[in-house]
Design a protein around this nucleic acid. Structure first.
Length: 921
RNA sequence: AGGCGCGUAGCUCAGUGGUAGAGCACUACCUUGACAUGGUAGUGGUCGGUGGUUCAAUCCCGCCCGCGCCUACCA
């Protein structure tokens, strides 16, 4: 083995081997365990969020697989309608073309080409992250089977009246020329103005003043509303208003919607361009006057000289014109919430169109109950509140999109505009008795991408067919996803799953993880220039390449210098090739529930070092066992105390890791293994094993230590494998034969189980004694500035039988590891020389000071120790002197405190004696 | 406006009703035959503030301060 762990050379080949050998496929035996991969955008690339999420899922899947479950990790990608179409359209624009130049069929061909070309990027990158998903079952939301599911669901919902077509206001993206759902609109506060406009009253001299943030919509006003109880305007209700600039007359109406306290208490009502106004309009039978084209330009409903103008230009002109007519009361600066499309960032326009909707409430009801009843559990639990909040106030879902890339809506129209829905055109005709000579035209629209995503848990398993996979793996075990798509995806999967799988939930648990942010807690984004690419953490990147990557293709090129500066500052040496395992371990250790993670590259480095530590431990083990007699298949061995101790400790860590994994606490699992490997196995056990391997001549003892080194390492590798698959496989391949284990891969080995028989409390206590002894010596060395290599004579005073017994079994250990020259046992009568002291229980470990130790330094050391114990003792005694405590606290707690007090008193006594002794020198 | 969450060492974060922990960073010493991507020892915290419950609160409850997110919004 190489001296230094080199991830690149290790990781190369394993994934291919695993995949080629079919290790990722469900075994067909054991309890079914299934995770659905949240399908990434087929034309996308891997980002930190994926890497984080996939680390969690892969750790769970590998863990469950090793435990003997029938595990399926369902792979696949999403067609991501709008996002993908935009990418291809952008490519066309580069050639000076639009999709309309190509026509629908040619354009869709082009998108498929692009999907083929780039679609493998994401799946290749997924493989780099070690994700053990079943590629043989890979699905795409627009492949044949899934498209069939989509049609089936649409038709069935339509038959039940749960999908309908309606004309109403939608969120319209004037750049994309499509409707989008509420969820695809993000509102944010922006600076704007509030214009107050005078609306003359017909037949009177006065006017009403209305305030608006969107003066251009006045062209579509149908009324002015006041509050019914507003005394100021009561007399005007029913009168008419001369709507400026249009020549139209509109009524004054009374409606509770108006807040009399706000502004003048008069509101212009524009039912075709505002969601609230539409409601008011409905109540008062007001006409909806649409004044916009699909580009949000003024249409022919408006006075001629505004026609064709963009909405923002029209706004300017209208304000000017009002000013010219003396109808502009005033203009104030005003902050308002501006809705923008999440893809285009264009201001979304409430727009009157015909769209398809899913009636949400009947579907939401059982979906709410599924969570209330505990059939679906959120982890962490508090996310159910978010879910309920959304589901209980759910609005009908607009599912039609006026784009080309997606599942075309299975509805046909005749020339009278009648609608016929069917799985095919033929079925649509048949069901509705439409004869063959009537010409039908299919709806041009496609479905919202999330419509097909909502079916993912059962469509990928073969629904509507009753496949064995569906039978076996539905309901799936856990869904791992970010809170940002609870509404987009999780809620809709639950609704659709309950609906089409006979009330069965799509998954039993939903593990919600946080967002991956940069090391300062900021959201990673191209425009901020703080994006990390998981592949760069794995493979490394030179500074210059990193800078280049971050500053090219910026929407705001003026940010480039700032980004370059911070990049050079944060990564002066670029990024080292830390490897997949180190990256995964980092994500695992940060995977605490319910919290975003601030990703610090320093952590990755630390865990790369951990990999190196493990690597070198393995190197030590192998170099001392390969070609040696390990007695692996014989009982003719003697286990040392240290052997029995580490085996016992292995049981604890196994329990701890399993408990953590079972509770989705991958962070705790990774910490437990980290500590075991570094702090127990490497720091203590390997060091203790050296005293055997380098000194013992007893073959049985040697065999015992050799086989313990091997066996514990082998088990530890298995414990760790779900988190860091590559390094564990690489080492395991060398270690397993020595451990007498057959198998082609660590992946399919049984996961370690707690074994009561291996628990050895006596050995644990013995090694604790050794540790205390050695730490005491090291402290004296460290604080007295005694060189680590200098052999020390040591005296033991007040030693008990047990101490002496432990000394005998561990004499070599303490001598070698403590670099002791000699150990002398003092009897009660012996006069101890002036010494530095360490305390092991009731025993004093003395290092004579002659020529070694500085008096003042030792006094300082002792006094520091004394202060510490004084404080602790005072605390404990305070408790014990409080009758409330001794009376009311549980006996066990009181006894514990008493024991502590005794211990402190003893230690204090020893230390005080020492202080007196040394002071008198 | 409503909801959720966070505030623990310089930084990033665990944690527990009963002596505050880790990684990184920092200080000193050490190239000892797995590993300097290392070893040994050490520095560092009134656990945001304030009341309450309790024998005992960093942990449970109330209020306050600061920060973040989500949902819905008054033209």
């Amino acid at each position: 083995m190489e001296k230094v762990f080199n991830p690149t050379s290790i990781e190369k080949s394993w994934y291919q081997k695993w995949e080629d050998n079919g290790y990722f496929q469900a075994s067909g035996t054991g309890t079914p365990y299934c995770i659905m991969l949240p399908p990434p955008n087929v034309t996308g690339t891997l980002h930190m969020g994926h890497a984080f999420q996939h680390t969690i899922m892969d750790s769970l899947i590998r863990y469950k697989r090793m435990q003997g479950n029938n595990t399926l990790w369902q792979a696949g990608t999403d067609h991501a309608g709008i996002a993908t179409q935009m990418v291809v359209e952008r490519q066309l624009i580069a050639d000076g073309k639009t999709r309309h130049d190509l026509g629908r069929d040619a354009f869709i061909d082009k998108v498929w080409d692009w999907k083929e070309e780039s679609g493998n990027t994401i799946t290749k990158q997924l493989r780099c992250s070690g994700a053990s998903m079943d590629w043989t079952r890979e699905r795409f939301t627009m492949d044949e089977g899934l498209s069939k599911s989509v049609t089936e669901v649409f038709v069935r919902l339509h038959e039940e009246g749960l999908i309908y077509r309606g004309k109403r206001l939608v969120n319209w993206d004037p750049v994309l020329h499509t409707a989008v759902s509420d969820l695809e609109v993000n509102s944010a506060e922006e600076d704007g103005h509030m214009w107050s406009i005078r609306y003359p009253i017909v037949g009177e001299d006065g006017y009403l003043i209305v305030a608006t943030t969107r003066p251009e919509t006045m062209l579509g006003d149908s009324a002015v509303a006041v509050h019914p109880d507003d005394e100021r305007y009561k007399h005007l209700v029913g009168k008419m208003i001369q709507l400026p600039l249009t020549g139209r007359e509109i009524p004054v109406i009374a409606d509770d919607y108006v807040d009399p306290e706000f502004g003048t208490g008069c509101v212009k009502i524009t039912p075709a361009h505002d969601f609230n106004d539409a409601e008011v309009g409905k109540r008062h039978n007001l006409p909806q006057i649409n004044i916009f084209t699909i580009d949000a330009r003024i249409n022919d409903e408006a006075p001629e000289h505004y026609r064709g103008m963009g909405r923002f230009d029209a706004r300017k002109m209208i304000v000017e014109d009002l000013k010219g007519e003396g109808l502009l009361e005033d203009i104030k600066d005003h902050k308002l919430m501006v809705p923008r499309g999440d893809r285009t960032h264009a201001v979304i326009e409430p727009f009157l169109t015909d769209q398809w909707y899913v009636k949400a409430e009947p579907l939401a009801k059982p979906a709410i109950e599924a969570v209330e009843s505990g059939k679906i559990k959120f982890v962490p639990g508090n996310w159910d509140k978010t879910y309920y909040e959304w589901m209980r106030n759910i609005e009908d879902w607009c599912i039609s999109r006026q784009i080309w890339w997606g599942h075309r809506i299975p509805a046909w129209y005749d020339d009278q505009g009648n609608i016929y829905v069917g799985r095919t055109e033929a079925e649509a005709r048949e069901k509705n008795n439409v004869s063959a000579d009537v010409e039908l035209k299919q709806d041009d629209d496609v479905l919202d991408t999330w419509f097909s995503s909502a079916l993912w848990p059962f469509s990928t398993l073969g629904w509507p067919e009753k496949t064995p996979e569906l039978e076996t793996f539905y309901p799936t075990s856990v869904l791992v996803t970010g809170f940002d798509i609870i509404f987009f995806w999780v809620a809709r999967m639950i609704m659709m799953g309950m609906k089409f799988m006979d009330g069965e939930v799509p998954f039993k648990e939903v593990y919600i993880h946080g967002l991956v942010r940069d090391n300062e807690g900021h959201k990673m984004s191209k425009s901020k220039g703080n994006v990390l690419d998981p592949l760069d953490l794995i493979n490394g990147i030179e500074l210059e390449d990193l800078v280049k990557k971050r500053v090219t293709g910026l929407m705001q090129p003026q940010m480039a210098p700032k980004i370059e500066f911070s990049t050079r500052k944060n990564f002066p040496d670029g990024i080292a090739a830390y490897g997949t395992d180190a990256m995964r371990f980092t994500f695992a250790s940060l995977a605490t529930t319910g919290r975003d993670i601030a990703f610090d590259v320093g952590r990755v480095e630390g865990y790369r070092n951990f990999c190196n530590k493990l690597w070198n431990a393995a190197r030590y083990v192998l170099s001392n066992t390969e070609g040696e007699d390990t007695g692996i298949n014989s009982d003719d061995v003697i286990l040392s105390t240290a052997d029995r101790w580490i085996i016992s400790k292995l049981q604890s860590v196994t329990t701890e890791v399993q408990a953590a994994m079972d509770n989705y606490r991958i962070d705790l699992a990774s910490h437990a293994i980290y500590e075991f490997i570094w702090d127990e196995y490497c720091d203590w056990y390997i060091e203790l094993s050296k005293t055997v391997l380098y000194n013992s001549e007893d073959e049985k003892v040697l065999r015992g230590t050799r086989q313990t080194l091997i066996k514990v390492l082998e088990e530890t590798l298995k414990l760790l494998h779900p988190i860091t698959p590559f390094i564990t496989e690489e080492i395991w391949q060398r270690v397993a034969p020595l451990a007498g284990i057959e198998g082609d891969t660590i992946m399919l080995q049984p996961y370690p189980e707690f074994n009561q028989e291996s628990v050895d409390k006596e050995a644990e206590a013995d090694i604790e004694w050794v540790k205390t002894f050695l730490i005491g010596i090291r402290r004296i060395r460290g604080e007295m500035n005694i060189s680590p290599g200098k052999p020390l004579p040591v005296l033991l005073a007040d030693s008990s039988e047990l101490d002496l017994q432990r000394l005998e079994t561990n004499r070599v250990n303490v001598t070698k590891l403590g670099k002791l020259e000699s150990i002398t046992i003092l009897s009660a009568d012996d006069q101890a020389p002036e010494s530095a002291t360490a305390i092991v229980g009731n025993m004093k470990v003395l290092v004579p000071m002659a020529g070694l130790i500085d008096k003042d330094a030792e006094l300082a050391r002792l006094n520091k120790e004394k202060d510490k114990i004084d404080k602790e003792l005072a605390k404990v005694q305070g408790k014990l002197n409080n009758p409330n405590f001794t009376d009311r606290a549980p006996e066990a707690v009181v006894n514990k405190e008493k024991a502590k007090a005794e211990e402190f008193v003893t230690s204090l006594k020893i230390i005080e004696e020492q202080i007196t002794k040394i002071e008198s020198l």
